[in-house]
Amino acid sequence: MGIPVPKLTMKETIALIDQVIDERRPELFHVVTLNPEITMSCQHDAQLRNIVEEAGLLTADGIGIVMVSQLKRNPLPERVTGCDLLLQLLQLEGTNARTYYLLGASKETNQLAAEEIERSYPGVKVIGRHHGFYSEAEEERIIGEIEGLSPDILVVALGAPRSERLIHRYKHKLNARVAIGVGGSLDIIAGTVKRAPAIWQKWNVEWLYRLLNQPSRWRRQLILPRFAFRALMYKDKS
Rank of each mutant, 00 (worst) to 15 (best):
W218P: 06
K173I: 08
L212R: 09
A190T: 05
A228Y: 09
R165D: 02
N213T: 09
T192V: 11
L212C: 14
W203L: 15
V182K: 00
R226D: 06
V155L: 10
F229Y: 14
A176R: 03
G183H: 09
R169F: 08
G191P: 01
R217A: 07
G159D: 05
I188A: 13
I167S: 00
L166T: 14
A179C: 08
W218C: 10
A198S: 13
P161Q: 08
V155Q: 09
R220W: 01
Q214H: 11
R169T: 11
E206D: 11
L224C: 06
L208D: 02
R226K: 11
W218F: 14
W218T: 14
L208K: 00
K171F: 00
R217L: 15
Y209S: 03
N213W: 07
I167D: 03
S163Y: 08
R210G: 01
Y170D: 06
T192E: 09
L186C: 04
G181D: 00
G183M: 12
A190Q: 06
L212F: 13
A160P: 01
A198V: 13
I223V: 08
Q214D: 15
R162A: 06
R165S: 01
W200M: 12
A157C: 13
G191I: 03
L212N: 11
H168W: 13
P197E: 04
N204R: 15
L224E: 00
G184H: 05
A196S: 02
D187N: 15
L211S: 03
A196D: 00
G184K: 04
P161K: 09
Y209A: 01
Q214E: 14
Q201T: 10
S216W: 12
L158C: 03
L166E: 12
A176P: 02
E164T: 10
L222E: 02
Y170L: 11
K171Q: 13
G183Q: 04
L166K: 12
V178Q: 01
K202E: 12
S216H: 13
G159E: 04
W207K: 01
W207F: 02
R226L: 12
I199G: 06
K194A: 15
V155A: 12
G181P: 00
W207S: 04
P225F: 08
S216P: 07
Y209E: 05
K194W: 08
T192N: 10
I189T: 10
N204G: 10
H172I: 10
L186N: 05
S216E: 14
Q201A: 05
E164N: 12
R217D: 09
S216Q: 13
L224I: 12
A196K: 01
D187P: 09
G184D: 03
L222P: 01
N204L: 05
R169S: 10
K194G: 12
S185P: 01
V155G: 06
A228N: 04
A179N: 01
A198P: 10
R169K: 15
K194P: 06
E164P: 07
R220Y: 08
W207R: 02
R195N: 14
F227Y: 15
A157L: 11
F229E: 07
I199Q: 04
A198N: 15
R219N: 14
L186T: 00
W218D: 08
R230P: 03
I189Y: 07
S216M: 12
S163H: 10
Y209K: 10
L186S: 01
G191F: 01
Q214S: 15
P197D: 00
K171L: 04
R162E: 09
R165L: 04
Q201P: 02
R210T: 02
H172V: 09
I223C: 01
V205D: 11
